[in-house]
Amino acid sequence: MFDNFPIWPVAASSHAFWEDLLYLFLVAVCTAMTLLIFAAVAILATKYRRRHGREATPIHGSLLLEITWSVLPMGVFLVMFVGGAVLFFKMRTPPRDAAEVYVVAKQWMWKLQHTEGQREINELHVPVGRDTKLIMTSQDVIHSFYVPAFRVKMDVIPGRYTTMWFRPTRAGTYHLFCAQYCGTMHSGMIGEVIVMEPADYQAWMSGGPVAGSLAENGQALFQQLGCSTCHRFDVQGRGPNLIGIYGKPVQLEDGRTVVADEDYIRESIVNSQAKIVSGFKPIMPIFQGQISDEQLNALVAYVKSLSQAPAGQAGTPELKSPGTQPESPK
């Protein structure tokens, strides 16, 4: 096709194959249904066009037909529903061992923090074949992280985390768009996702100077902000011991149980009174407005690292070789 007249987007993630497959299935079914209606209207209108000496035959209807054309489409719709739901479930469930990148959106730029410590603006470097999970928040309005080549999109919302994940399958440079209208330069809030071969990625990672991993920075903040005076690891402090909590259910003072995911950890820092752990007093200060979203990400990364073995060390995500994927879409 011509450069300025593509009709199909490039596919560069493991989701893309299934997304395209489902889309083509819907296109096929809907084209068939459209043609059916168009042909029926055209044929009936021509065949029964008004002529002298021929009158219309009154017909009241047919219960059998009505039921048929209610139930049949419903059946087809159910197939689409199940297909869509299964794919969505997969897209919304990141693999446990996915490498993590924190994203902070603001009018009108993307700031990214790799757990290894690298920082980027409007660019995201990722290796082919590695599951990558993005943990995203916004400093101001709602944005949406959209990479058409990966067929993934998720709104980025102030005051909380949303997550998405993908596994790049093809090296190249792809569009990163903000898909949720966010003000004057919404259409300028674009960037690039650069997918590299693992060796190139390793070279890129070891390129620039890095002042410690994200979790190490978080650990420094944890000391600096005085968190460690109450959240102790040796003896029971005035706050809960944070080792091993990530991903585990937490019993709250009001009887509820929540899972300690990124969003819970984040909320427990910025709005510490929202969900008090059973057996503790609401004495922690509220950090809303006291620390930046980037600092918050570092703290969250540190608290999560406390749940990785060996405890207290930031884990480094392993690189998978591209050959080990279960499916390898073209």
Partner: peptide, 14 residues
């Protein structure tokens, strides 16, 4: 229907 179907909506929403 493309927008009601969750999997396809993720890509074409907005």
């Amino acid at each position: 229907l493309f927008l009601a179907s969750l999997g396809t909506d993720v890509h074409i929403h907005d």
